[in-house]
């Protein structure tokens, strides 16, 4: 009954997988943030080792597939309880049965991984739409989000392709991190609500926000009201950062 604790980075997770791969007494992997001490389990700290992580990374790419690696990455980003250990189980299964096991959707581990992947990609698709920028300086835009999963790293390609001529800051309120990017570069930095508020307080009321709010009200057909459907597509937890539903 061993529990591996890593630092929350992807390299850390891969190191944990490296250390725990042979050790059948490992029953759980978690991060320092999420770790809850437990009487029965014996904790073991994992020190992130870039060399070990790289070995796992390249081994997955060459012996398994890029698709498998992608699945592990999405599962890691989901940050849901149990997701880290599921990655280890998934890796063990893939190495044992070969890459073709990915087709076996009926297998509980494969199915678990796909469900995590689905949750993360669905939220990513939603966030591409629900993100709302405010112009805090000429051609510098700020958005605040509070996603269930850690979306900042996978939002980069979309934002860079689409808004290649503007600078952007996407603040993840839940994780106190921000993605700072423009058309060429991107970086993820620690950030706080006060810093975001400071930026927002400096800018004046946006005429286009007003116009869009009005557009949102007008384009609705009251005779066809269907709040249930609206809720299915746009859950309440996303609405507080969207200007039209605030």
């Amino acid at each position: 009954m061993k529990i591996l604790i890593y630092d929350g980075t992807f390299d850390g997770l891969l190191t944990a997988c490296f250390e725990g791969y042979q050790d059948k007494t490992v029953t759980e992997i978690t991060t320092f943030d999420r770790y809850q001490p437990d009487l029965l389990q014996q904790p073991q700290e994992i020190i992130t080792d870039k060399a070990k992580a790289d070995r796992v990374y390249h081994s997955i790419l060459t012996k398994l597939s890029a698709y498998t690696l992608e699945n592990i990455y999405y599962a890691y980003l989901s940050e849901l309880p149990g997701c880290d250990f599921l990655c280890l189980q998934y890796l063990r299964l893939c190495y044992q049965k070969g890459n073709k096991i990915n087709a076996a959707r009926q297998h509980p581990i494969i199915d678990g991984i796909y469900r995590l992947r689905f949750k993360v990609t669905r939220e990513l698709d939603r966030m591409k739409g629900f993100l709302r920028f405010q112009e805090v300086a000429p051609l510098f835009f700020l958005a605040q989000i509070e996603p269930d999963h850690n979306l900042l790293p996978i939002l980069i390609p979309h934002l860079q392709k689409r808004f290649s001529d503007q600078a952007m800051l996407v603040f993840d309120q839940k994780r106190n991190r921000a993605l700072l990017l423009n058309g060429q570069q991107s970086t993820i930095i620690p950030f706080s609500q006060t810093e975001a508020d400071n930026l927002l307080n400096n800018c004046k009321a946006d005429e286009y926000a007003q116009l869009f709010r009005q557009y949102f009200q007008t384009i609705n057909i009251p005779e066809r009201e269907n709040l249930r459907q609206q809720l299915n597509y746009m859950p309440h937890r996303y609405r507080k950062n969207m200007l039209e539903t605030q």
Binding site: G129, S164, N226, Y233
Partner: peptide, 23 residues
């Protein structure tokens, strides 16, 4: 999209909001 200019199309389409009629 093109580097330095605004906009790109997403193959699957993106919904940005939903009105009270569910559209």
């Amino acid at each position: 999209g093109k580097k330095g200019s605004l906009g790109s199309a997403a193959k699957a389409g993106i919904c940005h909001s939903f009105t009270a009629d569910g559209r």
